[in-house]
Amino acid sequence: NQASVVANQLIPINTALTLVAMRSEVVTPVGIPAEDIPRLVSMQVNRAVPLGTTLMPDMVKGYA
């Protein structure tokens, strides 16, 4: 099972992602792969992401 990126805190809309804001977890459905965490740092989310939410490619500006 592949680990996905999960919000480690509430991430407000247009907030730049940080290492502290993300964690890796095996979840269903699978979201952005955990190995992409370094690439996600400083990218912005295009919606509010609640704690525990799996990050999907369409939630991160410039990711997809």
Rank of each mutant, 00 (worst) to 15 (best):
V41L: 10
G31W: 00
M22Q: 02
I13T: 12
V41P: 02
L40R: 00
T54L: 03
G62F: 08
P57I: 05
L55R: 00
S4R: 01
V26T: 09
Q2W: 12
A7N: 02
M56N: 02
R39K: 15
M56R: 08
K61W: 11
R23M: 05
R23V: 06
D58W: 13
Q44W: 14
T28Q: 11
P57D: 05
M22G: 02
E25Q: 09
L19N: 06
P12R: 09
M56Y: 06
I13K: 13
L17F: 00
G31R: 01
T53N: 08
V60R: 01
V30M: 15
V27N: 03
M59S: 02
L40K: 00
A34N: 04
N14L: 07
M59T: 03
P29F: 02
L40H: 00
R23I: 06
V60F: 01
A16S: 12
A48P: 10
P38M: 11
V41K: 03
P50V: 07
R47Q: 14
L10K: 10
S4P: 01
A48H: 14
A34L: 03
Q2G: 15
A3P: 11
N14W: 15
D58Q: 14
P33Q: 05
E25P: 00
M43H: 08
T15D: 07
V6C: 04
P57R: 07
N46A: 13
L17W: 00
Q9V: 14
V20R: 14
G62A: 08
T54V: 10
E35S: 13
V5W: 00
P29R: 03
P38C: 15
V49I: 15
L17V: 01
A64N: 15
A48E: 14
V20C: 10
V6K: 00
K61A: 11
M59D: 10
I32G: 01
V27C: 07
V49E: 04
N46M: 10
L19H: 08
I32A: 01
V49F: 02
I32C: 05
V5P: 00
N1T: 15
V30N: 11
A3V: 07
A7C: 05
I13C: 12
T28N: 13
V27F: 01
P38F: 12
P50N: 08
G62K: 07
V45S: 03
R47S: 07
V45Q: 01
P12L: 10
M56K: 07
L40Q: 00
E25A: 11
G62T: 06
S4I: 03
A21C: 11
V27A: 05
I11F: 02
Q44N: 08
M56H: 07
M56L: 09
I37G: 03
M59I: 04
K61P: 10
L10C: 15
L19F: 13
Y63V: 05
Y63H: 05
V6M: 03
T18K: 09
M59R: 00
V26Y: 13
T54N: 01
I32V: 06
S4E: 02
A16T: 11
V6Q: 02
L10E: 14
L40S: 00
L17H: 03
T53H: 12
M56G: 03
V5H: 00
L10S: 14
V27E: 03
L51W: 10
N1P: 15
S42V: 03
S42F: 08
A16N: 10
I13V: 15
R23T: 07
V27D: 01
M59G: 00
I37E: 02
N1D: 15
D58N: 11
V41I: 11
G52L: 04
V20G: 14
P29E: 05
P57C: 07
P50E: 13
L55F: 07
Q9E: 14
Q9R: 13
T15P: 04
R39L: 14
M43C: 09
V49P: 03
N46L: 14
L55S: 02
R39Y: 15
T28W: 09
L17E: 05
A34G: 07
A3S: 10
M56T: 12
Q44P: 08
P50L: 10
L40P: 01
T18G: 05
L19T: 07
P50K: 09
V49R: 00
D36L: 11
V45P: 03
I13P: 13
M43N: 04
G52A: 03
P57K: 07
R47A: 09
S24Q: 10
R39A: 08
V5T: 04
V27K: 06
L55H: 01
G31M: 01
P57L: 00
D36S: 09
T18L: 06
L55G: 03
A21E: 05
E25R: 08
A48V: 14
V41M: 06
E35C: 10
P50A: 11
R23D: 05
D58F: 14
T15I: 06
V45D: 04
S24K: 14
A7M: 06
L10H: 15
S42W: 08
R23H: 05
G62N: 13
P33I: 06
L51E: 15
R39S: 10
L51H: 11
V5C: 06
L40F: 00
Q2H: 11
P38K: 11
N46V: 12
M22K: 00
S42Y: 08
N1L: 15
K61V: 14
K61F: 10
I11G: 04
Q2D: 10
Q44S: 14
V26R: 06
M59V: 05
L19W: 12
P33S: 09
A34S: 10
A7K: 00
T18Q: 08
E35L: 12
R47D: 05
A48K: 11
M56A: 05
